[in-house]
Amino acid sequence: MTEQALSPAGGAERPVFLIGPQRSGSTLLRELVGGHPQVCLPRHTEIDIAARLMAVAGSERWPQLEPYRRQLLRSRRYLQHGNVFPEELDFPDTVRSFIDQSMRRDADARVVGATVHQDFDQLPRLWPKARYVYLNRDPRAVVNSAMQRGWAANAWCAAEQWMLCLRQRERLATLIDPVDLLVIRYEDLVVDPVGTVGRILGFAGAEGELAEPVTTYPERADAWRSTMSPLDISLVERRLGPALAVEGYRPATEPRPDLRLRGALLRLDDQVGRLRLRLERDGVPLTAATTVTRQLRLTSEQNLLDRVDTRRRRYGEDRHRRSSQSLVTRGAIPRLLGLTIAAGEPGPSS
């Protein structure tokens, strides 16, 4: 065991994981907390991929090492990070070694960890004493951001990731000591960054507080109210049901008929909308080439992804928003579902 693993704050034996859905403000949180001199929070792709493989393999066995290695070697973040894939270790010790390597590179670190967005309920198998900071955010803001990024083409499907993370948090709470889970809200973080980050640092075992004032733009927390359509807001609230209020977020629309039986149609619409966005943004040749190389796991995928990133950086935000509209926002699916777009009111039930 390394000297760092025996540090007063727990170090590599008690890492701190920032968990929660993507687009919830985790980058801001990681930069604020990771800016403390005693905290080391690199972007650990290794932990994300390991958790996903563990969820697929199930609780009775560990994933195989070679598929894990191959996935890491296809990850640009892993290649840029500089970690070394250890030889002659089993899967759990291999994954743990990446946290150890991060801590050894930072001699001042008392706290080490990573950001994990999915399948974080698998991590207690690797680190039984780990601590977790769950970042919650209004799901309508999360959905709005995901749709603007082109990750989903309608609000119904975009809300599924938020709900999945909530379920994983509930399962995680049954696997760990309650004192090892801290839930914070993005809305509190941007209004009071010093106080909120101070709570996290105390929870993690780091000393001191934010050294410099930060700008967090609290007015953006409710930006979804002016940028989302009434239909999208309604789809999110109907998809999440009572979970919205349980997490402390008030509905903004009136209750409407349940759409669970029509979820398949909305998922089909989401797939068509995302494909349309990729074709418009990246072009037919690049979209086809990227799809083929991913399916066949060819080594040329790295160059293709670099070209995709270049195209997307040149892609205007206004055009991005227009192209990310799916059949839902263009009106085809709402008419099939008996919904009215303009006023956001429910149409005749069917």
Rank of each mutant, 00 (worst) to 15 (best):
T329E: 14
L182A: 07
E160C: 08
E317T: 12
R256K: 11
L89T: 03
E13T: 11
V190Q: 01
L277Y: 15
E3G: 14
P139N: 09
D188R: 05
Q101H: 08
T329G: 10
W151Y: 13
D121A: 09
L29T: 00
S75K: 04
I19V: 15
A243R: 02
D309S: 15
R70F: 05
H44N: 10
D269H: 13
P124W: 06
R262M: 15
Y249A: 05
R61V: 08
L268R: 15
R260I: 09
T27W: 05
E317L: 15
Q80A: 07
R149N: 11
D108A: 15
P92G: 00
A288I: 13
R96M: 02
G198R: 01
R77W: 09
P8T: 04
W156L: 08
S324M: 10
R260V: 11
G241S: 08
S234F: 06
L175K: 04
D188L: 06
V308Y: 08
A5P: 06
R274F: 07
N303E: 10
G11Q: 02
E13C: 07
T196W: 03
N154P: 13
D192Y: 04
G248S: 10
R260S: 13
R313D: 12
D306C: 07
W162D: 02
R23F: 08
G35A: 06
G35K: 09
F17L: 09
Q80R: 09
A51T: 04
R30K: 15
A221P: 01
L298N: 11
L296P: 05
E46D: 07
D282M: 08
Y78A: 02
S145T: 04
Q80H: 03
L189E: 02
A223R: 09
A245D: 10
T45E: 12
A159R: 01
Q161V: 12
V292S: 10
P346F: 09
P251L: 04
E13F: 06
T2D: 14
R185T: 08
T94V: 01
H44Y: 08
